[in-house]
Amino acid sequence: MRGFNITITVLIASAIFSYLFAFIAGLCRISENPIIRHVTAVYVEVFRGTSLIVQLFWLYYAIPMLFGIQLGSNWWTGVIAIALNYGAYMSEVVRGSILAISKGQTEAAIALNMSKFQRMRLIILPQAVRMMLPEFGNYTIQMLKATSLVSLIGMTDILYYGDIIRSSNLSQAPIVYFLVLIFYFLLALPLIWLTRKAESISKKGVASG
């Protein structure tokens, strides 16, 4: 079935960018600088407070109109919309996990005279990331589902081709959409498996062996 590569590439790219945004925004929200904190909070609340589909259309129509720039292509528009949206959600996971690491860990690191950056890199983040893994897995499955929206801005993904076949031959609709669903489920299976694995890793707290 065609459209496969669009769905996959959009998923991979938006996953990578969303993790990036999540870490940047999550760290900014616990920054000591109030301006950085508040600006990031606005980003997070705006993207969490509105629908992804609205954000997608907004970026698709409004950005070129408002600034006279093209985001390059529909592919980029889709990736950026999904990444910004889920980056906002996951930044809360990043922030929550960092704050959940016990104060004693920071104190022990200070007692060993580590700098702020060393404390974050060597002590806090390695533990926080373990806590984040299951939630990141869940959000990645959500992102896979969200990639179906790019067909609405004219991307020729798997759903787009499904729609084409359906509109040319309506009686085939059941089998076409069922196959599309199966296709998404097959993509989701490894993600589900990884998420469960991540859950067991994070429950142990420490990956021994």
């Binding site: 016990s102 004693g104 104190e107 022990a108 007692a111 390695p126 373990r130 707290g205 420490v206 990956a207």
Partner: peptide
């Protein structure tokens, strides 16, 4: 200066 804590605060990872 070095310090030892009541609750050890070893790095679990």
């Amino acid at each position: 200066i070095g310090m030892v804590f009541q609750h050890f605060n070893l790095f679990p990872h």
